Amino acid sequence: MDPVLADIFRLSKDLLEKAQTRGVTIGVVESCTGGLLGAAITAMPGSSTVFMGGFMTYSNDLKERLVGVSHDTLRKHGAVSEDTAREMAAGARERLGVDLAISITGVAGPGGGSAEKPIGTVCFGLATSDGVSSETQLFADMTRNRVRDYAVMHAMKCLSEAVG
Rank of each mutant, 00 (worst) to 15 (best):
D149N: 13
P118D: 05
G120A: 11
A89T: 14
P110H: 06
S47M: 10
V107L: 09
E161C: 09
H77P: 02
R95W: 05
A79L: 04
G113V: 01
G68K: 14
V24Q: 07
L66P: 05
S103L: 05
R144G: 04
D99N: 15
M52F: 11
D149C: 11
S70T: 12
G54K: 03
D149Q: 15
G106L: 10
T25D: 02
F139E: 09
C158I: 11
A92E: 01
K18D: 07
R22K: 13
V29G: 09
I26Y: 00
S133F: 00
G38E: 07
L11C: 13
H71M: 08
S48C: 08
A115F: 07
E82C: 15
L159D: 01
T128G: 06
G131P: 12
L96V: 14
K13I: 00
S48H: 04
M56I: 15
K13C: 03
S12N: 02
D141A: 11
V163Y: 01
P45K: 11
K76C: 12
R148G: 06
T143I: 02
V132G: 11
V29H: 13
N60Y: 03
G113P: 10
L138R: 15
A43H: 01
P110R: 14
G23S: 08
I8A: 09
T21K: 13
M156T: 06
Y58W: 03
M44N: 06
H154L: 03
S59A: 11
S48V: 11
A151Q: 00
A151T: 01
S31W: 07
C32D: 04
L37K: 10
I119D: 00
A79T: 13
A140K: 14
S70P: 10
N145E: 15
E17D: 13
K76P: 02
E161N: 13
A79K: 08
L5H: 06
E116P: 03
A85I: 03
T121P: 01
R146L: 08
S12H: 00
R75Q: 13
L15V: 00
M88T: 04
A108P: 15
E161H: 07
G97K: 11
D72Y: 04
L36K: 15
H71A: 12
F124A: 14
V107S: 10
P110F: 06
G113N: 02
G38A: 13
M153E: 05
K117T: 15
T33N: 09
D14R: 14
S114N: 00
I104F: 10
G23P: 09
L74N: 08
Q137N: 11
V4I: 14
R75M: 00
D61T: 12
A101F: 07
T105A: 07
T25W: 05
Q20K: 13
G164D: 08
V122R: 09
G23R: 10
T84I: 00
M153L: 13
E17R: 15
D7W: 01
